[in-house]
């Protein structure tokens, strides 16, 4: 455990992957839009599920999940995805696909590779922390840090 327990997509091999993007003819429910939920770690994932309740009951919207693989806190993600039966799309597939919307509760990873408008939210009680400037660390203050708009840097 600990530092060595990074996120590894291969751990999801046993789990059926979702087909990214728009519904295929093999699907049962033909949703009109596809939303991508972006997971960084279990912390951001729990908040993500809280937020995605806005789509409950609407078969027009399908939700898929991916993981940036950027957080040092990768432990538990595979178990979380499996336990919650999240339809998972690999990061590679995400880069090749287009989504109608992405929701991200953290700022890390190569979010610019996602082809979708992104809604960024906090994963805690607003924005209270500034992370120290270490490799892979950014700021969780709104707009602090990066000049590339809103501190969209790696912060886990």
């Amino acid at each position: 455990m600990g530092a060595g327990d990074m996120w590894d997509e291969r751990r999801l091999n046993a789990f059926p992957a979702a087909v990214p993007g728009p519904p295929s003819r093999w699907g049962t429910v033909a949703a009109e839009r596809t939303v991508l939920g972006v997971i960084h770690n279990v912390t951001s994932a729990t908040r993500l599920l809280d937020l995605l309740t806005v789509f409950d009951g609407d078969p027009r919207v399908a939700v898929q999940f991916t993981c940036t693989g950027s957080s040092p806190f990768g432990g538990g993600i595979a178990e979380f995805i499996t336990a919650h039966e999240l339809p998972y799309v690999s990061w590679d597939e995400v880069r090749k696909s287009t989504f109608d919307l992405a929701i991200s509760t953290s700022r890390g990873g190569d979010l610019q590779q996602i082809s979708a408008p992104i809604i960024g939210t906090p994963h805690g009680a607003g924005y209270n922390k500034t992370l120290r400037r270490e490799p892979g660390a950014g700021s969780r203050e709104p707009g602090a840090g990066s000049r590339r708009l809103m501190g969209w840097r790696r912060s886990g």
Binding site: Q112, G120, P122, G126, L149, M150
Partner: peptide, 14 residues
Amino acid sequence: MIPAAIVLSHDEQR
């Protein structure tokens, strides 16, 4: 990368 929307929980954050 430009986010489409930045969600805040309080006006103070703006």
